[in-house]
Design a protein around this nucleic acid. Structure first.
Lengths: 349, 349
DNA sequence: GTTAGCACTCTCGCATGATGAGTGCTAATC
DNA sequence: GATTAGCACTCATCATGCGAGAGTGCTAAC
């Protein structure tokens, strides 16, 4: 079989795969000798060296310095993920364990999300990312007005995605609970399934108190809509910091800034548009500088294409892609199933 | 004036104060020469050295090694905080800036808490701690039942402290919104101001659906009561990690574990019992080993003695106590004022 | 195409030595 | 009696140098 200059022989692929795995595990550059010692390849170190040289020419490997072993480049990881990984699955025993944990929290969305994050962090040893399921264009499902004090009302709003929002409403003239209930009953019918822009419009058709309430609702929805695109929780920082990559001073701080900072939100996440889409970003493939030395795996989950959230894993480029990918995919499906039970009016086909 | 062996002369106090301030600022051990260079004391280095020696005998200072400058001990900080600090106040310009920020978020408790944390972190350069205002024994103020789907109901509960809780309720036989509203109207009157134990009791007096609802409410309250004692948010980690104390590898991780771990919650916080109580824990004064190298300033804020929360600052023992203490005190009063507007039925005398 | 052999490179860890900040002590001074 | 000048001494820090070890690349043989 003749090898094109940009095709890898079977053995070269195998060597690349082993180097990636070995390096991910140990964190040290992999030498030809070490590779032979740990896996019987049936060939001599010299042969491996030759292949390594070729892999280096193809930019899949690199030297930290002249006399160290090889380390995968970002393209090396990319090749590994795309061609050498197959379709990794979560081991059955793991699946059962995870499903069992999820069955404990049942229908509580908040608790499920926490659990999902914990599972992701646990499985990868890295940082789990998760954003709550939100609709792109939230509409009103229901709201309530509760009198707290003479001049203070609590507004509770439930939106289409089942999220509960709250806000205090300050009024000049006292209104009793009866009137509040009557008002809310009437207005609820009026604005059900409306977007915040429509409610804003509707507010102008009312006067005094009703108008105030509607405006508050519109404002609340708008505010949370803006915030929801910026909501990204993370989990597993402590454990992740135990890794040698991160244990060096200053890196921890940088990592926190990445998490808090906008690069993830503004650059990476918008690329994951559809439900069940799973994307992998490795090191320099990230446009953003901050993320140069990280690998990110992100999937979009949700009951429908309307109400969705994101979840994934962030770690050093040197991360266990196989386990991470399979776990992200599995947990994302679990969460989707769960949401379907809570949100969808009818099960998906 | 005769000096008792355990009393400090005026000059010794001044030297101690300067050493603490200088060390807090620079982070490097302070030598006699350096002290003279930066502040004109009107005496020679040798004199300062003698006084330093005495301060060291009294265990207010210590040598890292034979030939380095002096560093305050934990008792040194303690003496500084108690005797040399006076009653530090937030500068007027700061006060105005902070008050202005608070006026922006107005009555939104959640936003105010975030802001409070941000202000604390900003002022101290360290980590802000804050726990939401909760009542020791929450009672029911109001609840609502909202039908989401045939077999799924959203339960929204408002407790005495004004906190909103939510929970999904799964039922076998569909109930329409009309019935839900009727049920909730009736039950609301029944259980207003009750504790979860009383509600549990009340549940047994009802049958089927009503009983289910009451039980769910009781369970929800109990759950959140347990959680509320374990709720402690932190803010400003990134900035804090920029400090030399923390930039060394591994410390970041340890710090995260302190925050997540229970030492703070279970050991320190319970000691701050009353509203407006402000406590300072310095290094080894903390019983817990994890906190050996940290200083913690905590105050309890609240509208009344019933509904209270905690807020404070955690940093290395080497922290700016003056600014930290004054800011904690100031912000705590601001939050108390705010809560008084929201919660208290009548203003405090 | 594969392998053995070998010179070469470069990091890492360790000992060495110079530097300099800071001390503690003693004796002189105010 | 308190303060100060002078001086020998201590010890962390930093740069330098050196040996060991891991790993490579090349060439020539298989």
């Amino acid at each position: 079989m003749i090898h094109m200059s940009d095709e890898l022989s079977e053995r070269q692929q195998k060597i690349l795969k082993l180097i990636v795995q070995e390096y991910v595990q140990t964190g040290r550059a992999v030498g030809s000798k070490a590779l032979i010692d740990r896996y019987k390849l049936g060939v001599s170190p010299a042969t491996v060296r030759n292949d390594m040289g070729i892999l280096e020419d193809q930019a899949f490997l690199q030297h930290p310095h002249t006399s160290a072993g090889r380390v995968p480049t970002d393209s090396g990881y990319r090749y590994y993920v795309e061609n050498l990984l197959g379709n990794p699955r979560v081991p059955m025993s793991e699946q059962i364990r995870i499903r069992h944990q999820f069955s404990q929290v049942e229908m509580q969305v908040a608790a499920s999300m926490k659990l999902a994050a914990a599972v992701l962090a646990e499985a990868s040893g890295n940082i789990a990312l998760i954003s709550p399921p939100r609709s792109i264009q939230e509409t009103v499902r229901h709201f309530e007005l509760i009198s707290l004090r003479d001049h203070l009302i609590l507004l509770i709003l439930v939106t289409q995605s089942g999220t509960v929002h709250e806000s205090f409403l300050h009024i000049d003239d006292p209104v009793d609970q009866e009137t509040l209930s009557a008002t809310s009953r009437q207005l609820n019918d009026e604005i059900r399934d409306m977007r915040h822009t429509e409610i804003q419009l509707q507010a102008s058709r009312h006067e005094s108190f009703s108008a105030l309430v509607l405006e508050q609702i519109a404002a609340l929805m708008q505010r949370t809509e803006q915030e929801s695109t910026a909501e990204l929780h993370s989990e597993g920082l402590e454990r992740a910091l135990r890794q040698p990559e991160f244990s060096h001073g200053g890196v921890a701080q940088q990592l926190l800034e990445v998490l808090r900072g906008g690069a993830l939100l503004s650059v990476l996440l918008p690329q994951v548009r559809q439900k069940d889409d799973l994307r992998i970003f490795i090191g320099s493939e990230n446009v953003s500088d901050e993320l140069q030395s990280y690998g990110v795996i992100i999937a979009r989950y949700g009951a429908t294409n309307e109400v969705t959230g994101l979840l994934g894993i962030l770690g050093p480029t040197r991360m266990p892609y196989d386990r991470s990918i399979s776990t992200v995919r599995y947990v994302s499906h679990l969460l989707s199933d769960l949401l379907r039970q809570v949100h969808a009016d009818e099960p998906e086909q």
